[in-house]
């Protein structure tokens, strides 16, 4: 029982990270119908940049992270302006190919600079576990959960309360109508890329401080984001959160219960099995947009 609870808690922590990463992915898809295959690579790059600022430049960890987040917001604007805007109106497949190319380039750069090794994020939390009953909670895990929850809350507030956030949802709903009311669709695309990269880097830093940093390990999260968003429904922000948590919990339960029995690691397979099962029953995902039809 306690083992199950422990697995659930760990699952929620890692799941909240997936949710955060998935949020950025969904945002770009919602605004511009682009599947960003480079999402995981931006996540990894951001984490390494924060790591480099904290170790090589010896900045304190928290300012290093905040500086990285700011830089990546700007990088998001630049990527949209330089790489994606010339492709507006072209076939979606062309844009997807570009994002795959971007992914390779970023990966290559990271291998050039940091190589394939593992690094540890400088510690900024006491490494004393908090024990509640039989549950072992590390402060870093709790902080990760809190940071993810805070970001998700902040984003949902932004989409509900701010005029820019409401306008972003309007663009996702009907681009031409939004244009007719003076919404600058280009600006919306740019901002959604900025926010997407911020969410990716935030997720990456949380994972990086919980586990370790490696080019391969971090970019893989970009792949795990796919089952999370597809299960949730590609264009749903709450769906991304639920999907992320679900994938995180499933991963941990598999690792805890099934892997020891079979003697092989299935933890990275199970999310995709669940993905297939859910898509068979709900093709638009759990929370995907079902067109509102008045009869």
């Amino acid at each position: 029982m306690d083992f199950l609870l422990q697995l659930l808690v760990n699952g929620l922590v890692i799941g909240s990270v997936y949710a955060l990463a998935a949020l950025g992915f969904v945002l770009i898809y919602k605004a511009s119908r682009v599947l960003n295959f480079a999402h995981g690579d931006f996540l990894a790059l951001g984490t390494f940049v924060a790591f480099a600022l904290a170790t090589s430049l010896r900045l304190p960890v928290i300012p290093a992270i905040i500086l990285t987040l700011l830089c990546f917001f700007v990088l998001g604007l630049i990527v949209e302006r330089v790489v994606l805007r010339p492709l507006i109106g072209k076939e979606v497949i062309a844009v997807i190919m570009v994002s795959i190319g971007l992914s390779s380039v970023i990966k290559g750069v990271m291998y050039l600079i940091w190589g394939p090794g593992y690094f540890l994020f400088p510690e900024f939390m006491p490494d004393v576990p908090i024990i509640i009953g039989d549950l072992y909670l590390s402060p870093v895990h709790l902080l990760g959960l809190a940071v993810s929850a805070a970001f998700l809350g902040l984003f949902s507030l932004f989409f509900k309360r701010s005029t820019l956030g409401v306008a972003m949802r309007a663009v996702a709903d009907d681009q031409q109508a939004a244009l007719s009311l003076g919404v600058s669709v280009r600006k919306i695309f740019a901002v959604s890329w900025g926010i997407a990269l911020v969410s990716a880097v935030a997720a990456g830093v949380v994972v990086g401080s919980i586990t370790s940093l490696s080019t391969e390990g971090l970019s893989t999260i970009g792949i795990l984001v796919f089952p999370a968003v597809i299960v949730g429904g590609l264009d749903s922000v709450p769906g991304a959160v639920v999907g992320g948590l679900l994938i995180g919990v499933l991963e941990n339960l598999t690792a805890g219960f099934i892997d020891p029995v079979l003697g092989v690691s299935l933890r990275s397979v199970v999310p995709f099995v669940v993905l297939v099962l859910i898509l068979m029953m709900k093709p638009y995902g759990l929370f995907g947009t079902v067109e509102i039809e008045r009869v």
Binding site: T163, A170, S180, L181, G182, T289, I292
Partner: peptide
């Protein structure tokens, strides 16, 4: 009409104020 179907009525009105 082309209203934003997935936004509330009031949010639809708010989109008109972006400029």
């Amino acid at each position: 009409r082309r209203i934003f179907k997935h936004l509330t009525v009031e949010e639809n009105l708010r989109v008109g104020t972006v400029t």
